[in-house]
Protein backbone atom coordinates (compact mmCIF):
# COMPACT_ATOMS: atom_id res chain seq x y z
CA UNK A 1 0.00 0.00 0.00
CA UNK A 2 2.80 2.40 0.94
CA UNK A 3 4.30 1.58 -2.45
CA UNK A 4 1.30 3.21 -4.07
CA UNK A 5 0.74 5.86 -1.45
CA UNK A 6 4.11 7.59 -1.71
CA UNK A 7 4.16 8.03 -5.48
CA UNK A 8 0.47 8.94 -5.46
CA UNK A 9 1.09 11.71 -2.97
CA UNK A 10 4.08 12.91 -4.99
CA UNK A 11 1.86 13.02 -8.07
CA UNK A 12 -0.70 15.04 -6.16
CA UNK A 13 2.01 17.50 -5.14
CA UNK A 14 3.20 17.96 -8.71
CA UNK A 15 -0.36 18.33 -10.01
CA UNK A 16 -1.17 20.93 -7.37
CA UNK A 17 2.00 23.01 -7.59
CA UNK A 18 1.08 25.06 -10.70
CA UNK A 19 -2.29 25.82 -9.13
CA UNK A 20 -0.61 27.02 -5.93
CA UNK A 21 1.60 29.48 -7.80
CA UNK A 22 -1.06 30.86 -10.10
CA UNK A 23 -3.69 31.12 -7.39
CA UNK A 24 -1.37 32.78 -4.84
CA UNK A 25 -0.32 35.34 -7.41
CA UNK A 26 -3.89 36.06 -8.38
CA UNK A 27 -4.81 36.32 -4.72
CA UNK A 28 -2.29 39.10 -4.16
CA UNK A 29 -3.60 40.88 -7.24
CA UNK A 30 -7.14 40.59 -5.94
CA UNK A 31 -6.12 41.67 -2.46
CA UNK A 32 -5.12 44.97 -3.99
CA UNK A 33 -8.61 45.28 -5.40
CA UNK A 34 -7.92 44.16 -8.96
CA UNK A 35 -9.46 41.13 -10.66
CA UNK A 36 -7.29 39.76 -13.46
CA UNK A 37 -9.04 37.00 -15.39
CA UNK A 38 -6.07 36.64 -17.72
CA UNK A 39 -4.30 33.94 -15.69
CA UNK A 40 -4.60 31.34 -18.43
CA UNK A 41 -3.00 33.63 -20.98
CA UNK A 42 -0.19 34.66 -18.65
CA UNK A 43 0.47 31.02 -17.77
CA UNK A 44 0.76 30.05 -21.40
CA UNK A 45 3.22 32.83 -22.10
CA UNK A 46 5.25 31.76 -19.08
CA UNK A 47 5.21 28.20 -20.32
CA UNK A 48 6.40 28.95 -23.83
CA UNK A 49 8.99 31.58 -22.97
CA UNK A 50 10.33 29.51 -20.09
CA UNK A 51 10.64 26.52 -22.38
CA UNK A 52 12.44 28.51 -25.08
CA UNK A 53 14.84 29.97 -22.53
CA UNK A 54 15.69 26.66 -20.93
CA UNK A 55 16.20 24.80 -24.19
CA UNK A 56 18.30 27.65 -25.60
CA UNK A 57 20.50 28.28 -22.56
CA UNK A 58 20.23 25.00 -20.64
CA UNK A 59 20.00 27.09 -17.52
CA UNK A 60 17.15 26.19 -15.20
CA UNK A 61 17.30 29.48 -13.38
CA UNK A 62 17.14 31.45 -16.61
CA UNK A 63 14.20 29.33 -17.70
CA UNK A 64 12.30 30.11 -14.53
CA UNK A 65 13.30 33.75 -14.69
CA UNK A 66 12.15 34.00 -18.29
CA UNK A 67 8.83 32.39 -17.42
CA UNK A 68 8.39 34.86 -14.60
CA UNK A 69 9.24 37.82 -16.79
CA UNK A 70 6.91 36.62 -19.53
CA UNK A 71 4.02 36.38 -17.08
CA UNK A 72 4.88 39.74 -15.58
CA UNK A 73 5.16 41.27 -19.04
CA UNK A 74 1.69 40.07 -19.92
CA UNK A 75 0.33 41.43 -16.68
CA UNK A 76 1.96 44.76 -17.45
CA UNK A 77 -0.29 45.08 -20.50
CA UNK A 78 -3.21 44.42 -18.20
CA UNK A 79 -1.96 46.93 -15.64
CA UNK A 80 -1.55 49.66 -18.23
CA UNK A 81 -5.07 49.10 -19.48
CA UNK A 82 -6.93 48.83 -16.20
CA UNK A 83 -4.84 51.19 -14.09
CA UNK A 84 -3.68 53.64 -16.70
CA UNK A 85 -6.72 53.69 -18.92
CA UNK A 86 -9.44 52.57 -16.51
CA UNK A 87 -10.49 49.68 -18.73
CA UNK A 88 -12.98 47.18 -17.30
CA UNK A 89 -11.03 44.58 -15.43
CA UNK A 90 -13.15 41.53 -16.19
CA UNK A 91 -13.20 42.06 -19.93
CA UNK A 92 -9.57 43.13 -20.12
CA UNK A 93 -8.55 39.95 -18.30
CA UNK A 94 -10.55 37.81 -20.68
CA UNK A 95 -9.04 39.64 -23.63
CA UNK A 96 -5.60 39.02 -22.14
CA UNK A 97 -6.35 35.32 -22.15
CA UNK A 98 -7.33 35.37 -25.83
CA UNK A 99 -4.23 37.39 -26.59
CA UNK A 100 -1.97 35.08 -24.57
CA UNK A 101 -3.28 31.90 -26.14
CA UNK A 102 -2.63 33.37 -29.58
CA UNK A 103 0.74 34.91 -28.82
CA UNK A 104 2.09 31.82 -27.07
CA UNK A 105 1.06 29.66 -30.00
CA UNK A 106 2.72 32.08 -32.40
CA UNK A 107 5.95 32.23 -30.42
CA UNK A 108 6.04 28.48 -29.90
CA UNK A 109 5.42 27.49 -33.47
CA UNK A 110 8.88 26.05 -34.05
CA UNK A 111 8.92 24.01 -30.87
CA UNK A 112 6.84 21.01 -31.93
CA UNK A 113 8.84 17.90 -31.16
CA UNK A 114 11.52 19.70 -29.15
CA UNK A 115 12.29 17.61 -26.09
CA UNK A 116 13.66 18.63 -22.72
CA UNK A 117 14.41 16.28 -19.85
CA UNK A 118 12.86 18.47 -17.19
CA UNK A 119 14.46 20.50 -14.44
CA UNK A 120 16.45 18.38 -12.01
CA UNK A 121 15.20 17.03 -8.72
CA UNK A 122 17.05 18.38 -5.70
CA UNK A 123 16.77 15.88 -2.87
CA UNK A 124 17.59 17.56 0.41
CA UNK A 125 20.43 15.67 2.10
CA UNK A 126 19.48 13.66 5.22
CA UNK A 127 15.88 14.85 5.23
CA UNK A 128 15.12 13.00 2.02
CA UNK A 129 16.28 9.75 3.66
CA UNK A 130 13.57 9.84 6.31
CA UNK A 131 11.22 6.99 5.52
CA UNK A 132 7.83 7.96 4.06
CA UNK A 133 8.13 11.68 4.72
CA UNK A 134 11.49 12.02 3.01
CA UNK A 135 10.47 10.98 -0.50
CA UNK A 136 7.17 12.82 -0.20
CA UNK A 137 8.46 16.16 0.96
CA UNK A 138 12.17 16.39 0.27
CA UNK A 139 12.82 14.92 -3.16
CA UNK A 140 11.38 17.56 -5.46
CA UNK A 141 12.59 20.14 -7.90
CA UNK A 142 13.18 23.72 -6.93
CA UNK A 143 9.77 24.89 -8.08
CA UNK A 144 7.93 22.56 -5.74
CA UNK A 145 9.99 23.69 -2.78
CA UNK A 146 9.43 27.21 -4.00
CA UNK A 147 5.66 26.74 -3.87
CA UNK A 148 5.88 25.80 -0.18
CA UNK A 149 8.11 28.75 0.56
CA UNK A 150 6.02 31.23 -1.35
CA UNK A 151 2.84 30.15 0.44
CA UNK A 152 4.47 30.85 3.78
CA UNK A 153 5.95 34.10 2.54
CA UNK A 154 2.69 35.39 1.15
CA UNK A 155 0.91 34.49 4.34
CA UNK A 156 3.56 36.23 6.42
CA UNK A 157 3.54 39.22 4.08
CA UNK A 158 -0.19 39.74 4.38
CA UNK A 159 -0.41 39.24 8.10
CA UNK A 160 2.81 40.52 9.55
CA UNK A 161 4.20 43.22 7.32
CA UNK A 162 3.31 46.83 6.95
CA UNK A 163 3.39 46.46 3.18
CA UNK A 164 0.86 43.66 3.48
CA UNK A 165 -1.41 45.84 5.54
CA UNK A 166 -1.14 48.63 3.02
CA UNK A 167 -1.96 46.22 0.21
CA UNK A 168 -5.09 45.11 2.02
CA UNK A 169 -6.03 48.70 2.79
CA UNK A 170 -5.78 49.58 -0.87
CA UNK A 171 -7.98 46.64 -1.77
CA UNK A 172 -10.55 47.40 0.89
CA UNK A 173 -10.97 51.07 0.19
CA UNK A 174 -8.86 52.73 -2.43
CA UNK A 175 -10.33 56.12 -1.63
CA UNK A 176 -9.40 55.89 2.03
CA UNK A 177 -5.96 54.53 1.18
CA UNK A 178 -5.46 57.36 -1.26
CA UNK A 179 -6.58 59.90 1.28
CA UNK A 180 -4.03 58.59 3.76
CA UNK A 181 -1.45 59.09 1.07
CA UNK A 182 -0.70 55.60 -0.19
CA UNK A 183 0.16 55.42 -3.89
CA UNK A 184 -2.83 53.29 -4.88
CA UNK A 185 -1.94 52.95 -8.54
CA UNK A 186 1.66 51.99 -7.84
CA UNK A 187 0.68 49.40 -5.25
CA UNK A 188 -1.91 47.89 -7.53
CA UNK A 189 0.58 47.81 -10.37
CA UNK A 190 3.05 45.91 -8.22
CA UNK A 191 0.34 43.49 -7.11
CA UNK A 192 -0.66 42.87 -10.72
CA UNK A 193 2.96 42.30 -11.71
CA UNK A 194 3.41 39.86 -8.84
CA UNK A 195 0.30 38.00 -9.98
CA UNK A 196 1.63 37.89 -13.53
CA UNK A 197 5.04 36.66 -12.44
CA UNK A 198 3.47 33.90 -10.36
CA UNK A 199 1.22 32.86 -13.25
CA UNK A 200 4.35 32.86 -15.40
CA UNK A 201 6.10 30.52 -12.97
CA UNK A 202 3.02 28.32 -12.90
CA UNK A 203 3.21 28.10 -16.68
CA UNK A 204 6.93 27.54 -16.51
CA UNK A 205 6.34 24.69 -14.09
CA UNK A 206 4.08 23.07 -16.69
CA UNK A 207 6.58 23.27 -19.53
CA UNK A 208 9.76 22.74 -17.51
CA UNK A 209 8.79 20.13 -14.97
CA UNK A 210 5.23 18.80 -15.01
CA UNK A 211 5.35 17.71 -18.65
CA UNK A 212 8.54 19.22 -20.01
CA UNK A 213 7.55 20.15 -23.53
CA UNK A 214 5.69 22.88 -25.31
CA UNK A 215 2.32 22.25 -26.91
CA UNK A 216 -0.17 24.96 -27.77
CA UNK A 217 -2.70 25.58 -25.05
CA UNK A 218 -0.97 23.12 -22.76
CA UNK A 219 -2.30 24.75 -19.60
CA UNK A 220 -5.66 23.22 -20.53
CA UNK A 221 -7.77 25.43 -18.28
CA UNK A 222 -5.58 25.39 -15.17
CA UNK A 223 -5.59 29.19 -15.11
CA UNK A 224 -9.35 29.13 -14.63
CA UNK A 225 -9.08 26.65 -11.82
CA UNK A 226 -6.52 28.90 -10.15
CA UNK A 227 -8.96 31.79 -10.37
CA UNK A 228 -11.69 29.72 -8.81
CA UNK A 229 -9.33 28.65 -6.04
CA UNK A 230 -8.78 32.23 -4.92
CA UNK A 231 -12.50 32.58 -4.40
CA UNK A 232 -12.59 29.14 -2.81
CA UNK A 233 -9.90 30.23 -0.38
CA UNK A 234 -11.80 33.36 0.55
CA UNK A 235 -8.56 35.25 -0.09
CA UNK A 236 -6.47 33.42 2.47
CA UNK A 237 -3.09 31.97 1.46
CA UNK A 238 -3.33 28.85 3.59
CA UNK A 239 -6.65 28.01 2.07
CA UNK A 240 -5.33 28.65 -1.42
CA UNK A 241 -2.76 26.00 -0.73
CA UNK A 242 -5.37 23.68 0.72
CA UNK A 243 -7.71 24.29 -2.21
CA UNK A 244 -5.03 23.57 -4.77
CA UNK A 245 -4.21 20.29 -3.04
CA UNK A 246 -7.85 19.37 -2.67
CA UNK A 247 -8.40 19.90 -6.37
CA UNK A 248 -5.15 18.26 -7.43
CA UNK A 249 -5.67 15.44 -4.95
CA UNK A 250 -9.11 14.48 -6.15
CA UNK A 251 -8.02 14.73 -9.76
CA UNK A 252 -5.25 12.22 -9.12
CA UNK A 253 -7.33 9.97 -6.89
CA UNK A 254 -10.01 9.60 -9.53
CA UNK A 255 -7.35 8.50 -12.01
CA UNK A 256 -6.21 5.91 -9.48
CA UNK A 257 -9.77 4.78 -8.90
CA UNK A 258 -10.15 4.29 -12.63
CA UNK A 259 -6.91 2.38 -12.88
CA UNK A 260 -8.18 0.11 -10.10
CA UNK A 261 -11.31 -0.50 -12.12
CA UNK A 262 -14.02 1.41 -10.26
CA UNK A 263 -17.25 0.84 -12.12
CA UNK A 264 -18.23 4.49 -12.48
CA UNK A 265 -18.30 6.29 -15.83
CA UNK A 266 -15.08 8.25 -16.30
CA UNK A 267 -17.01 11.44 -16.99
CA UNK A 268 -18.57 11.22 -13.55
CA UNK A 269 -15.13 10.57 -12.08
CA UNK A 270 -13.79 13.63 -13.85
CA UNK A 271 -16.59 15.74 -12.36
CA UNK A 272 -15.46 14.96 -8.82
CA UNK A 273 -12.80 17.64 -8.37
CA UNK A 274 -15.25 20.33 -9.46
CA UNK A 275 -18.10 19.02 -7.34
CA UNK A 276 -15.86 18.59 -4.31
CA UNK A 277 -14.62 22.16 -4.61
CA UNK A 278 -18.20 23.43 -4.70
CA UNK A 279 -19.18 21.34 -1.71
CA UNK A 280 -16.25 22.38 0.42
CA UNK A 281 -16.87 26.00 -0.51
CA UNK A 282 -20.46 25.67 0.65
CA UNK A 283 -19.24 24.23 3.94
CA UNK A 284 -16.73 26.96 4.61
CA UNK A 285 -18.85 29.86 3.37
CA UNK A 286 -21.28 29.79 6.27
CA UNK A 287 -19.44 32.44 8.22
CA UNK A 288 -20.30 35.47 6.17
CA UNK A 289 -18.53 37.91 8.44
CA UNK A 290 -15.22 36.15 8.25
CA UNK A 291 -15.35 36.07 4.46
CA UNK A 292 -16.18 39.74 4.35
CA UNK A 293 -13.19 40.44 6.51
CA UNK A 294 -10.80 38.78 4.09
CA UNK A 295 -12.35 39.67 0.77
CA UNK A 296 -11.14 42.88 -0.82
CA UNK A 297 -14.12 45.19 -0.85
CA UNK A 298 -12.96 47.25 -3.80
CA UNK A 299 -12.40 44.33 -6.14
CA UNK A 300 -13.07 45.14 -9.74
CA UNK A 301 -13.70 48.82 -9.16
CA UNK A 302 -11.64 51.31 -11.13
CA UNK A 303 -9.68 53.96 -9.31
CA UNK A 304 -8.44 57.32 -10.43
CA UNK A 305 -6.57 59.62 -8.05
CA UNK A 306 -8.56 62.66 -9.14
CA UNK A 307 -11.89 61.19 -8.07
Amino acid sequence: MVDILIPAIITIITASTPLVYAALGEMITEKSGVLNLGVEGMMLMGAVIGFIAVTQTSSVMLGILAAMLAGAGMSLIFAMLVLGLQATQVATGLALTIFGIGLSALVGQGLVGVAYEGIPKLPIPLLSDIPFIGPILFKHDILVYGSFVITVLVSWFLRKTRAGLILRAVGDSHDAAHAIGYPVIKIRCLAILFGGAMAGIAGGYLSLSYSPLWIENMSAGRGWIALALVVFATWRPGRVFFGAYLFGGITILQLHAQAMGAGVPSQVMSMLPYLATIMVLVLISRDQKKIKMNSPACIGQPFHPSS
Binding site: P7, T11, S211, M218, A220, I252, L255
Partner: peptide
Protein backbone atom coordinates in the same frame (compact mmCIF):
# COMPACT_ATOMS: atom_id res chain seq x y z
CA UNK B 1 -5.06 16.80 -25.39
CA UNK B 2 -3.90 17.77 -21.92
CA UNK B 3 -0.23 16.90 -21.35
CA UNK B 4 -0.51 17.34 -17.58
CA UNK B 5 -3.48 15.05 -17.21
CA UNK B 6 -2.09 12.45 -19.61
CA UNK B 7 1.11 12.40 -17.60
CA UNK B 8 -0.84 12.06 -14.34
CA UNK B 9 -2.81 9.16 -15.78
CA UNK B 10 0.46 7.49 -16.73
CA UNK B 11 1.77 7.99 -13.19
CA UNK B 12 -1.38 6.52 -11.67
Amino acid sequence: YDPGKEGDAAKA
